[in-house]
Design a protein around this nucleic acid. Structure first.
Lengths: 183, 183
DNA sequence: TTTTTTACTTACTGGTAAGTAAGTAGATTG
DNA sequence: CAATCTACTTACTTACCAGTAAGTAAAAAA
């Protein structure tokens, strides 16, 4: 254990969020970490292995956060998720799904599967959160909870994409409006 | 006038929507059109010129459509816009902004400017449509019309991104829910 | 009819990308 | 203490990509 592997994943995560999967190269990771590109191939033989590594790391992080928020009321849990996106916006990042979905057709099957896994896991959590919150009268909305969860996810995702083009205030405005609509 | 230029733009548009700007190459256009890559460079010296060409073409198309919808009630105008996205979904495409926004930081300034132009033009139209529709009691929503327009755009954009990962039903569900919420 | 312009092709370059084979220093294990 | 394993480096290959310089056939302009 040397920590290099973790640094590579973190760097790749940042690069996917800033430049996109197809636009970053091993050199973009190797140079700042002061290792050779072969060091990355040692830990991740193919670029798609690195891509999967980033997704797996993201799912682990999300699992830890969910656990930390578990005892909060559902509206606060959702706001915690919104905070994750607000912080990404501040850092100039977009979300992993928002970055990888456009490249989806260019990716190998293994990675496509992992992206689907990640998306479904987040969708299930948001759906459950909205459903429980509605029962407690913390949320008020029409229709199916999963439909509403899809819309929440799509708004969060695109708030980061549009922020990149129009400026960071877009994320603030969308997340604020979104939470007010649900209460 | 030989039509080659238009075919190149159409092909590039499709490729940006399916593979992304950084993932397609001149060969992807040259081979199916049975021309050489230098023919593309003749019409578009740099790749970013081609990117700008695609955006300009999209804005022209949007202007024509707006004109055709002009006399319809605002809720039907908005549904016409939704139809454009539903058709793209069926064709396996994502929207231009959804494809270009993730790559934004890797693009030259000229292209970034054109993407901003396109985004603002669509945002202005949706905002005006919602505002006029609300006055006529065709739409009912809380808050600023521009905020609401941002959310409509973000939902449309991400409905295509999520459709790619989870399947085309996502676009149907989001657009249906979205229009019901506004009425 | 000569000249110029348009719309390309042919043939090439320089740079960068992912990926690999072989070697190595230091830690771990038997 | 010898053998093995871990975590790399060195040095290289193959492939592709955007972009260019020079040439050409046909059409339009003078």
């Amino acid at each position: 254990m040397s920590g290099t592997r973790e640094k590579i994943v973190e760097m790749a995560d940042k690069l996917i969020r800033v430049k996109g999967y197809n636009a970053f190269s091993y050199k973009d990771i190797a140079d700042p970490l002061e290792v050779k590109n072969a060091a990355i191939h040692y830990h991740f033989p193919a670029k798609s292995d690195l891509g999967e590594g980033v997704i797996i790391h993201e799912l682990e992080t999300f699992a830890v956060q969910r656990e930390q928020w578990r005892r909060l009321p559902e509206d606060e849990q959702l706001d915690k998720l919104f905070d994750v996106f607000r912080r990404h916006c501040k850092a100039g990042n977009i979300c992993l799904i928002g970055s990888l979905a456009p490249d989806f057709e260019t990716l190998p099957e293994d990675m496509q599967g992992k992206i689907q896994e990640m998306t479904l896991e987040i969708l299930e959590w948001v759906t459950a959160c909205l459903e429980k919150g509605r029962k407690k009268k913390l949320f008020h909305f029409k229709g199916d909870a999963e439909d509403r969860a899809l819309m929440v996810m799509s708004n969060l995702q695109s708030s980061l994409l549009l922020s990149r083009v129009l400026g960071p205030h877009v994320c603030q405005r969308i997340t604020k409006r979104l939470l007010e609509d649900l209460r």
